[in-house]
Amino acid sequence: MRSPFRPDSLPDPAILDNHRPLINSLERRGLLRGGLSLGALVMLTGCDVKRPEAVKSALLAISRLNDDVQALLFNPNKLAPTYPASMILRPPKFNAYYDVMNVKPVDGATWRLEVSGLVADKRPWTVQDLQALPQSSMVIRHICVEGWSYIGGWSGPTLRSFLEHVGADLRARYVAFRTADDYPSSIDMATALHPQTLLATAYGGDTLTDPFGYPVRLRMSTKLGYKNPKWITAIEVTNTYPGGFWEAKGFPWFAGL
């Protein structure tokens, strides 16, 4: 295919000669140069690249835009691949913002799950209450933002059944979590209602052990590892952006897979 920018025929040389000075001053590169310096000027005035905070706020603005793009890419009916139970890693990989030695076990007998925000029934939940809900299981790949991954088997009620049970406003934007290890987190409602979003109480068929979030933690097949809080103590349904532990330090909020 020929260049769309190339004329079919050359103009009459006499015309070119008559306008030679004008043609010489018309330079495509001049326009490019001018455009570049104009662009540079705009960038310098709009955003001082010498200040790291300015760069970071620009990056965060793009990250928030990416959150919206990720929400658009999220298909609520798309299930993550599942694996045979024989592939489950035992025990699962521990990861937190502190060492496994510093895990503070939660007493299941006295543990209560607070429910707040846009819900009809705000009564606190016990471990038995969670066990009374219909149970689901899934063997999925856990993917960490760092790059490592492993196959894990999780069971418990779906977050959807829990939200329906407490009469949550399912049109609300966010579901927020607070935890015993001070690791706030939040997710979008579409992901909260996904069939592979569990309030996990068991791993590989056994009750969760202390380092992995006993008595209950979030496990989603559609988000990165850091979006899955352990030792959940409170769930809130809200329209106000709740943020999260790593999100406050710069990591993307949506973090969808």
Binding site: A58, W246, G250, F251
Partner: peptide, 14 residues
Amino acid sequence: WAAWSLNWHFAGMW
């Protein structure tokens, strides 16, 4: 650190 490398990466990709 990684979070900002990630943000650079996901901004640069566009």
